[in-house]
Amino acid sequence: MSTVLLVLHVLAAVLAVGPVTVAASAFPPSLRRAAATAAEDGGDGLGPARALHRISRVYSWVGISVPALGIATAVSMGVLGDAWVLASLTLTAVAAGVLVTRVLPGQQEALELAGRGDGSGGTGPVPAGTLRALGMSTGAFSLLWTVVVVLMIVRPGSTTGA
């Protein structure tokens, strides 16, 4: 049973957290391109940024399965109390917090600012500070997940870890 849970946990991480991480990272440049495109042709160009926000939002809900399956796997393997598991769970909670309190609201705010425009159908200005803060939050989210992946592979203190 541990093997099945582990496979499901890893698949959920790849198929849920991966898309959120990529979409969230691609969002700020997509919004910058939309503004540049709107300046050239007058369209709003926000379709790709809206799609990336939707991917981030929907896959973040699917991502809830990752820690749930991880906990079930840790319980079945008898390692739930190990330091690397507890550290991973803590970092996962912090990453989820960054996603829910910074990344997703930041994307929504940026889309709202860009969608206002000047009434001519173009893309409105998004302050550079807003995009910079969003990029930093997204980078923190990605870094936290990278550390979790390293902990899952290395498993410090385990008999099979490096």
Results as ranks from 00 to 15, higher is better:
residue 100 V to Q: 07
residue 13 A to E: 08
residue 1 M to G: 12
residue 145 W to Y: 12
residue 108 Q to D: 13
residue 53 H to S: 13
residue 89 L to I: 10
residue 58 V to M: 02
residue 103 V to R: 06
residue 141 F to P: 06
residue 37 T to S: 07
residue 14 V to A: 14
residue 148 V to K: 01
residue 42 G to A: 09
residue 96 A to H: 00
residue 157 G to W: 03
residue 47 G to D: 12
residue 104 L to T: 08
residue 31 L to D: 11
residue 99 L to V: 08
residue 143 L to H: 03
residue 13 A to P: 07
residue 162 A to I: 10
residue 103 V to T: 11
residue 138 T to F: 02
residue 77 M to E: 15
residue 150 V to A: 15
residue 117 G to Q: 05
residue 45 G to V: 02
residue 5 L to V: 08
residue 88 S to D: 09
residue 148 V to N: 01
residue 90 T to S: 15
residue 32 R to D: 14
residue 39 A to G: 14
residue 68 A to S: 02
residue 97 G to M: 10
residue 115 G to L: 11
residue 87 A to I: 09
residue 103 V to A: 08
residue 31 L to Q: 05
residue 52 L to D: 14
residue 21 T to I: 10
residue 134 L to G: 11
residue 124 G to K: 06
residue 100 V to T: 04
residue 105 P to R: 11
residue 114 A to G: 12
residue 25 S to A: 15
residue 55 I to S: 04
residue 147 V to W: 09
residue 1 M to A: 13
residue 150 V to P: 07
residue 8 L to I: 13
residue 21 T to Y: 01
residue 42 G to E: 09
residue 118 D to H: 06
residue 157 G to S: 10
residue 118 D to L: 02
residue 49 A to E: 12
residue 87 A to R: 06
residue 61 W to N: 04
residue 127 P to C: 00
residue 24 A to I: 07
residue 49 A to H: 11
residue 155 R to H: 00
residue 130 T to G: 03
residue 119 G to F: 13
residue 116 R to E: 15
residue 117 G to I: 08
residue 36 A to Q: 02
residue 17 V to C: 03
residue 125 P to K: 08
residue 1 M to H: 11
residue 89 L to G: 15
residue 91 L to R: 10
residue 113 L to Y: 04
residue 76 S to Y: 00
residue 91 L to G: 13
residue 38 A to I: 02
